[in-house]
Each structure stands twice: as structure tokens, then as C-alpha cells.
Computed example of a mutant assay.
Amino acid sequence: MTTMTQDAVLALGEEDARPAEIRRHELAGFLRSRRERITPEDVGLPRGARRRTPGLRREEVAHLSAVGVTWYTWLEQARDIQVSAQVLDALARTLRLDTSERAHLFALAGAIDPSPASSCARLTPELRLMLDKLEPMPACVQNSRYDILAYNSTYRLLFCDLDEIPPEDRNWMLLAFTHEQWRSTIVNLDEVERIMAAKFRAGMAEHLAEPTWKSVLKRLLDESAEFREVWERHEVVQSVPSKVKHFINPLVGPIAVVHTDLWLGRDGGARMVTYTPVDDATRERLDRLRELALSSNS
């Protein structure tokens, strides 16, 4: 089969060069470019004396990704074939794609990335530094699914010792509905849960087919009668203005803070969540909470 370059596809004119066809050719070129930049030595393969192909051969990428050689060849020939998220994930790992390249791969293939990190900005050293500099104000980074991806020392002890919770369970929805110590710190818990469930339903509308979203929903339905009750109301809330929130911290007592979301991308997914004290009493208690967090790490 004779393949076309992207320029050739564009030259066909708007009536022939459909967006899907253009994406297939862009995907083919992208795969070739990433295949050619990886040496056999990078993946533990012998170079051999007669190798003329820059980087890896197609059959080597197919073998390392556990896909058929013919099928992978068709991908690089821009044929109209279906590709699963699992195969794209394998190719991304074989080709050693970074976060931006992985997102580009899935976008070109018209597939949804099941990786939990796919909806969150990369946690750069600069972003982590910002979390630390906000001390003693509690702050964390969440994605659109409410996974807690990073946090500062004050936030760590705001509800309970977050370090003691397994990373896969560090999700605000799961904790608010299933973790008794976390739940016990939240004033007006019923109203908070109702709003969160409504926001989660609104956010999930764009992610209905994503395994990670469905996994969180299944856990909530299986583990929380309170969640099942509010979920059945089918309430939807897109966003809630910054407002004062009240917590009863088990170490320092009542805390009153203003919740603010600082969005980290244009898609409205990843955000830095900050809690600003509303009075001197809360400010002093947050200072004390940070001291306790730092001393417990020393």
C-alpha cells in the first residue's frame, strides 16, 4: 500500500481530507518519529551488523508492545483500523513517551487515556515548591476525579494523617463517604456530601467510558449507603463559588477557612486547592498543625 504524507492529505482539499484521515496520517508520522529516536540498546536489544533502520524496527516495537507486526505496520501506514486504549498504553511505554507525548498519542488515535494521571497537570518541582510555600495554609493538587495527587505538610494532618492512607485511596470523594476519621472532621457533612456528589456527577458526564472514573463510582456505590442515597437524586452542580468551610481537626480544634480552587489547565481538570484562614484563631491553629506535621516527620 502506498502511504501519503500529511502534506499530501492536506492537498486533497477539504472535501476529501476528512479530519479522521488527517489524524491517522499524523499518528503514523508521530509513531515513526518516536520509534526512530530509540536505539536497540535503550531497550536491551542487540544492534547487529546489518542494521540500517534508524532507531527500532517496526517488528521490534510490535514485539515489545505485544501486538502483531502486521497490525502495527498498518498503524504506521495510516490505515483505518481501530486501536484500543490498552494497545496505546503499551505503545506509549515501549516508545518511552512523556506525559505530553502520551496525551498526543491518545488524542490522535481518538481514544480515552485510562491512566489516572491523564487528567492532571504534571507535578513539576515548581508546583511542589508552590505547595510548600503556601504553608501553613493547607493546600493540595487534585484532578477532576478528586484524586489527591500532592499536598503540603499542613494539609497532610488537616483531616487525618494522609500519609497513612494508601495512594490509591487518596480520593476526596472516597474519603468523605467511607473514611470515618475524615468524615468526623467535616462540619455539615450531609450538605458537603450532597454538593460533592452533584459535582462528581456533572464532571463524570465527560468521562462516562473511562475505567478510572467507573472504578471510583463503583467503590462509592458498593461501600457507602449515604452515597447511594444522594446519587439517586441525580443532582448536578457545575461549580461552587469560594466559601467558608468549617472543620473540627482532632489535633488543634475548630478551623474556619475559605476554599479556593486555582486551576492548572484550560480544561478545568487539575487544580490546586487552598484553604485560607478566616480569623486569627484559625491562623494560629494552622501554625500549630504545621508544627505538629513537621515534628512528626523529623
Score class of each variant (00 low, 15 high):
E101Q: 13
E168S: 04
E284C: 11
V237G: 06
G44D: 12
D267N: 10
K214C: 09
R79T: 14
L45V: 10
F30T: 07
A270S: 15
A28V: 02
T5C: 12
A139I: 09
H207S: 04
D279R: 05
H179G: 06
A28N: 05
S65M: 08
R32W: 11
A20F: 09
A20Q: 12
I195P: 03
G44Q: 11
A49W: 03
N297H: 14
R57Q: 07
E60K: 08
D161V: 09
G13R: 03
T124M: 13
G265D: 15
E101K: 08
H246F: 14
D7C: 01
G48P: 11
R23C: 01
L286W: 06
A176M: 10
A111P: 00
Y275E: 06
R285S: 04
T274K: 00
F30V: 06
R47C: 12
L12I: 08
E232M: 01
D89C: 12
R288W: 07
D89H: 14
Y155R: 04
V240N: 09
L91Q: 02
G68T: 11
V187Y: 10
V69D: 05
A270L: 06
A139T: 07
E14D: 15
D287P: 03
L108G: 01
L262V: 15
D16I: 10
E60S: 03
F227H: 01
R283Y: 08
E41P: 02
D147E: 08
W213T: 05
P136I: 01
P40H: 09
A293D: 00
A202H: 08
M272W: 05
N143M: 07
A92P: 02
L262C: 12
A198L: 00
G265N: 15
H207K: 13
L91F: 07
Y146F: 15
H25V: 09
G203K: 00
V278A: 11
R219G: 03
R18N: 10
L10F: 15
N152D: 09
V273H: 05
L134E: 03
E226H: 13
R170V: 10
H259P: 00
S144T: 12
S239P: 02
K214N: 14
L149D: 06
L105H: 04
E168T: 09
E229W: 10
I195H: 10
K243G: 14
L45M: 11
V240E: 12
E21K: 11
A256D: 07
P211N: 14
V236S: 13
M272Q: 10
L220T: 04
R183A: 13
V236Q: 10
P277H: 06
P116Y: 06
R271S: 11
V141S: 04
R266L: 14
L134H: 07
A281I: 10
V9P: 00
T99H: 15
R194Y: 03
K218R: 00
L157R: 04
